[in-house]
Amino acid sequence: MSLADTLPRRRVWRLPGADGVIPWILPVVILIVWQIACSTGYVPTRVLPAPSDVVLAGWKSVQSGELIRNIWVSFWRATVGFLIGGGIGFAFGLANGLSQLSDKLTDTTLQMIRNVPHLALIPLVILWFGIDESAKLFLVALGVFFPIYLNTLHGIRTVDPQLIEMGRIYGMSNGELFRRIIFPGALPSIFVGVRFALGIMWLTLIVAETIAASSGLGYMAMQAREFMLIDVVVLSILIYALLGKLADSASRVLERLTLSWHPVFQKH
């Protein structure tokens, strides 16, 4: 029993399920205003199609199977590119965080490469890979690599040295030290890297697909622009927004599951 428990709880005005609804109020209001603005002719549909037109265009393209195929292609590219780039970044982060030799050998080089905007490599990448799948995967992997590398490295370097000393005193082997202290200690920072990387992943993919692709969401948007299908253009932009939100939510769920010990994630 503590003092705070004996105090009367302050009543908070709250609707059932309100926490889940509140974040979606603003997007819904924007949609409604948009629809009204288009229906009344305040915004000409050549500039911005009404949401209902966008939904219609989406429905048509679902029926033809084109939308699903394009989403799948983009999703596949994003995932594979993320896994390759993230995996390599994580491996380098671990190696350089744990071994001084590896750090001395590679960190300077990596920092130099990091300062080249990876999208500036697009002309070169097209020359190397054409507009093949590998071109997109390469760009996504390169973009994702750095946030994950830097944050993994930072996470490992900032693990409390007192905890590491404690682990050694209590007879932990190097493997155990890593598994029980260094990796869990670095995890919050690694997740920061993952969320940065997810943003860069979509950005890179959109740019790569609009410039050099023959399938995918970015390609769909570019094709639609050629034929002045503005509803399809808006549709693909909205789908990007949804996919980005989805990726972010997935990483949050993962964070919550693995970092339940962290005071930030504890509900009292």
Partner: peptide, 29 residues
Amino acid sequence: AEDVRVMFQEPRLLPWATVSSNVEVGLGR
């Protein structure tokens, strides 16, 4: 190795391990 133990000014508990797992760390090998 388990015969000599130290307790520091700071608790040095692993924040990501439950209280009982933290104590288990003390069992050494």
